[in-house]
Design a protein around this nucleic acid. Structure first.
Lengths: 319, 319
DNA sequence: TTGTATGCGTTATCAT
DNA sequence: ATGATAACGCATACAA
């Protein structure tokens, strides 16, 4: 494998000059420049980026810690991140966490070990203080409100969204409202749970723990949800579903079971994925791709910033 | 940032000994070992992986060139790859190609520049010969048959699958069969196109170019497909749909338009995604996760191997 | 405009 | 069992 020293020898110049040519620096004569380029061509030379990284202390690599990528929520987030990465000539290192704290620690470890310049944590599991302790190794960006913490973040206000959606259903006459969620832990889930409780307090409604159905991630989980509700003595009349995928699955399953929507069961989905439009599902639009883009930009700088993105209720046929 | 030299000084040993301790090499006394470990603890030391990579010539990084990750086909492939990466302590670098050749060349470039040890190309755009020319920079694995080429690959026989599916529909009495596909170019698409033509030749059926509908990737594309077919004077009576997502979208749209399935329109999907099971869609099961796992394993070795995976027609209610 | 010399932080070779 | 020293390949401060 040829290196700049070889090139220098071949072109009859110093390694510095070679480096200058390779990095498009000024102050190098046409003549020598051509000699170097000729040597590059002749040897089919390639930089060893590991050497560059060691020397510069940077890798042009950004870590993305994500529970899994085969769900539209994270896939769309990733899409936004990737679009910016492309533009800024950054590569992404995918760190699948499966919501495991140790995997997330590995991501932080990579930052410490200078394998990545910065890190986006799409769904945090470890302590905020732990993360903050790693901040001087490189910039870290979160996807949640992380109140009071001096960490960059882009997020939507899940508490507010959930509360407003519940009130919307209340205004439509619903008094028995349930919700479907991916998992119970995690900041976003806890905020939603809180909103759900506060809503019931505010309107003095009875709180049914069985109205909360977790492990709802994919289209096919809609089947499980409807089956579960069918078994209830006093089923909810409306459902907040934190993924349009699941909402669509519920709608389909309801059709199969001849449960009329929205009369017998009202549905509000989340994210405004294309499937929601096609199936005419009322949903709350969350700008996931834009969030991803912003997460990337925040990870690029060392400045700490906070960005809350607005959401939008899209009224369609399932409420 | 402390380095092994500092540690050596602190522990009163040589850098070699420090390195030995850090890499769990034998031949180091308990005493010195503890001294080193104590220094590590005291300084909160972390390896600089870039230095390791430069010195060893390896990065423990595998590149995954993928058109986009927000589609179940690639997401499932990625899932399989990621599961093995986790097990073998490899990290994945995501290279979104958007089917662009230049982006794919960038991936090859990364291999040349030693940023990644190996590369999985999930959907090739560049020349096979170009790829082969990069083989000595690191192992490269493809996801297509790549006949006669000395490159590792894991694939399913799309020609055979398509042909058999068409014959299956033929046996069921269908004479006007169309198909939906993501894009027209690409090895897999060309193989399918060839099978489609050969099928028509074999059974002396008229060839309708308008029965081939491209740009079918997502659930919502099903709407477009049905609308297009509705416009035809002589629409097909059966459809081969190269993604269960799209197949599901078509089924839903047909319900909306009151087109009866399978009587007026028969559907065969691909991949056997969970959505196909839930919606009782006849489909061809492709073991995507297993493919991903195998792709990873092939990329780990320098040996060239070929693996063709079997597929499976799952008869359900849409034919 | 060009070159020399040094640093980046490891690993590996070869003595001892 | 331990250590000195040479790679690894590039960037860059400084000198000229």
């Amino acid at each position: 494998m040829t290196n700049i020293k070889d090139l220098a020898k071949m072109a009859g110049v110093s390694v510095t000059t070679v480096s200058r040519v390779l990095n498009h620096h000024p102050y190098v004569s046409e003549e020598k420049k051509n000699a170097v380029l000729e040597a590059v061509r002749a040897t089919n030379y390639n930089k060893n980026l590991n050497a560059v990284h060691l020397s510069t202390g940077k890798t042009q690599l950004m870590g993305v810690a994500i529970p899994f990528s085969d769900h539209p929520y994270f896939a769309l987030l990733l899409k936004g991140i990737a679009s910016q990465a492309l533009q800024y000539n950054y590569k992404l290192v995918l760190i699948q966490t499966d919501y495991s704290e140790s995997r997330e620690m590995e991501a932080l470890q990579m930052l410490k070990q200078k394998q990545i310049d910065s890190l986006i944590i799409c769904s945090r599991t470890s302590d905020l203080s732990t993360i903050q302790g790693h901040l001087h190794y490189g910039s870290i960006v979160l996807c949640e409100s992380a109140e009071g913490m001096k960490i960059s973040k882009t997020f939507v206000n899940h508490y507010k969204i959930f509360f407003e959606a519940l009130e919307y259903l209340y205004q439509k006459g619903h008094r028995k409202i349930g919700y479907c969620i991916g998992r119970r832990s995690g900041t976003n889930s806890e905020n939603r749970s809180l909103a759900y409780k506060d809503f019931h307090k505010k309107y003095r409604l009875p709180y049914h723990p069985e109205y909360i159905i977790d492990n709802c991630l994919y289209f096919e989980d809609g089947e499980k949800v409807v089956n579960e509700i069918k078994e209830m003595d006093s089923p909810p009349s409306a459902l907040l579903v934190t993924s349009d995928q699941v909402a669509a699955g519920i709608v389909i399953r309801c059709e199969q079971m001849e449960i009329s929507i929205p009369d017998e069961m009202a549905i509000i989905g989340f994210d405004n994925e294309p499937i929601a439009k096609m199936m005419n599902i009322t949903t709350i639009e969350i700008p996931l791709v834009e969030m991803g883009r912003n997460l990337f930009l925040q990870a690029m700088t060392d400045n700490i910033s906070t960005m809350e993105l607005p959401v939008n209720l899209i009224e369609r046929g399932t409420v």
